[in-house]
Amino acid sequence: MTLTAQVKKRLVTIALVAPASLWLFVFLVLPFIAIIVFAFGERGPVGGYQPAFTFEQFANLGARAAAFVNTLVLAPIGAAACLLVAYPVAYYLAIKASPQRRLLLVSLVVVPFWTSLLVRTYAWMYILGARGIPHLLEYIGFDNVRLLNTPGAVLLGIVYGYLPLMIMPIYVSLEKLDRRLLEASADLGAHPISTFFGVTLPLSLPGVMTGIALVTILLLGEYLIPQLLGGGKVFFIGNALVDLFLQSRNWPFGSAIAVTLVAVVVVVLLVAMRIAWRIAGTRQVDLV
């Protein structure tokens, strides 16, 4: 009887896990294996893939060093900018807002996800474009101001696009924060600023790290925002991949870059988790 119960339990587990596993295997694991195989191959005479076993593609990664550098600089800066904007919002939502207002505001944070990022980024193209804000500036005497396709526009687009992903995990970790800890800190003589840095911030770090990891990882593959709001003048790994697969059809080199990017993502994740674990104490961490 216990055996059948066990078997039943196992079957239920399998039934629950199977669809997701199958999906991931077919659409994530298999393509990734293909990419790894490609990465050790050669470009065909007119593009595409030609079987081979060579490290040539990886040896050539230096040719896209600028893309890696740009990406590895943009991703943390973008994540940091998101964090700077998101933390006060999350703090207000979780700690300061009244419960009725909180529900409304939290929904507003999520609402932008109802439309695609592409559409929203296009909207920004028009807001920042010559018929948008610069047009209004003409009325107060500033002619031909250019906002679109500047680094500031890219940063704005990134902060705008990824803000909810940063706000939500921080909000959740601040919302879980026991308010009595803040009172205890004040009771023990800590100025509100000391309380923030000594108690609130460290205890919200799991949320902060989740947000940073989430935004950083997505930014490592970002293509759309720099393309639309930056005019494609800054070259990221995403751009390099698009060019290699769709324009110059150098699949093996593109694959090698993709594999390297995945490796970078894994390293970033591990480091982020390690830091969060260390700071927040072992029980608190619920990263990703």
């Binding site: 009595r180 004040a186 009771d187 460290p202």
Partner: peptide, 18 residues
């Protein structure tokens, strides 16, 4: 609170978990 010469033992203690 942080300028008062009193200290409190909180219900459920409110110890800093980190």
């Amino acid at each position: 609170a942080y300028r008062r010469p009193v200290n409190m033992v909180f219900q459920h203690y409110a110890l800093f978990p980190h």
